[in-house]
Nucleic acid binder design. Structure first.
Lengths: 231, 231
DNA sequence: AAGCCAACGTAAAGGTTGTGTAAAGGACTG
DNA sequence: CAGTCCTTTACACAACCTTTACGTTGGCTT
């Protein structure tokens, strides 16, 4: 059961959000004070925290900063309209996303799901027993931070390795460009941002030096898949 | 019991609509002021809202915009004749349909039923326990966003997949072209719009590569059904 | 039964959008 | 300040969706 904590002094808003998230099957709890929220968040019993920036008593950014000293728990910041600066600061402090008020419940749920899906990707990523795995002629050696094509080690940059590792660890699954960008490049995918495409292109080129077969398949509009050779 | 809220300052009209909808077995309530209607709509006790664009006090579009920040509740906009622009704006703000005044009760009821049916389709769609299902030689793997014919995976475009998934999830039921267009293509079905027909044609062609049997049956004037093999 | 017409099937053309990639531009490092 | 890496720019291309056009089908009228 996924539990979500909301820290916001707007009681009416928290009640509204409570309704929607409970409809979607989430466990939900709201508190209206910064310090109280911080304590609860630190307890690590919630999979996600919705955090308002404007809070009486203790600023949302302060809460975030202190929380990050204890916990990686994903945080979605809620900001009043036009707090551009706060957004930037929040993301730098380690917020996972931000959402400007007023927001639609639809949008909120979509953002929450996106974050949780990404967290799952990361956790899947970190399973140590999969430190070495082999797919379709590619061998990942995450201890050495290296990928082999056949016997040939690829000379990858740090970013290229991260992207390829992510794809390898989810071989057969579609990984969205949004997720790849956030997890490997550490930034939201912007319109007309082509850098991820370039990395993919470069990775393909390096693999193709040793193996002509198609490894990374493009799914237009969806993302990329690392093809498994045969089932 | 399905409850419908009508927000319209024309008292005579609301009484008329009340009669018809109650005859059809709907719970009905009318209010004549924007703010009051907004409060009621936000309470989520109604399955559908009929919303007049011309309202004293608070504009119907404003009501809609504010409602959408709190609720998914379906909205059918009522517009005075010739408010073409309003229609467009309303649909962009998230109205589900519009109906020009004066309208016949018969038409109103038809539109209401269409919207409610679509909402049910979507809800049915979202049931996660049905992530994998098999019908008549077709297997849906929604985790991988893939459909298999026998063992062969189909190479579908995003749109084709959406259409086929919708049909598969309602196998044995007729799905209207209007619904398919709105849910898979994201637009109302226009007169002489043949793009949905083309998608169906292409899907059939792709399935037929591996299985000659008739999967998608046309019901002239009604829509399409994904045939279940045997009962 | 013939004829009409609207709905549908689909090939081909048209237009739009996302992606591939070379090359140039920045940013950082030692 | 040279080298490495990441990003941006620019253009080409391919995939995709839609439109057009014409043929076919099925229901309805006369």
């Amino acid at each position: 059961m996924t539990s979500i904590l909301m820290i916001d002094d707007d009681v009416a808003l928290t009640q509204l959000v409570a309704e929607y998230l409970q409809l979607d099957g989430y466990q939900f709890k709201a508190v209206h004070q910064g310090p109280e929220g911080l304590e609860l968040a630190k307890s690590n019993t919630f999979q996600l925290v919705l955090l308002d920036i404007m809070l009486p008593g203790m600023d949302g950014l302060t809460v975030l900063k202190q929380l990050r000293q204890h916990s990686y728990c994903p945080v979605l910041m809620l900001t009043a309209r036009g707090d551009e600066i706060d957004k930037v600061v929040g993301l730098e402090l380690g917020a996972d996303d931000y959402l400007a008020k007023p927001f639609s419940p639809r949008e909120l749920v979509a953002r929450i799901k996106a974050i949780l899906r990404r967290v799952e990707l990361i956790q899947h990523q970190q399973q140590p027993q999969l430190s070495a795995l082999q797919v379709n002629g590619l061998r990942l050696d995450s201890a050495k931070r290296q990928v082999l094509v056949g016997e040939q080690p690829l000379i990858l940059t740090a970013t290229e390795y991260q992207i390829l590792e992510l794809l390898l660890r989810h071989a057969g699954d579609v990984v969205s460009k949004e997720d790849l960008s956030q997890l490997a490049l550490g930034k939201r995918l912007q319109l007309y941002d082509r850098s991820l495409d370039m990395h993919i292109s470069n990775i393909r080129k390096k693999i193709a030096q040793y193996d002509e077969g198609e490894k990374i398949q493009t799914l237009r509009g969806l993302g990329y898949v690392l093809l498994e050779g045969e089932q």
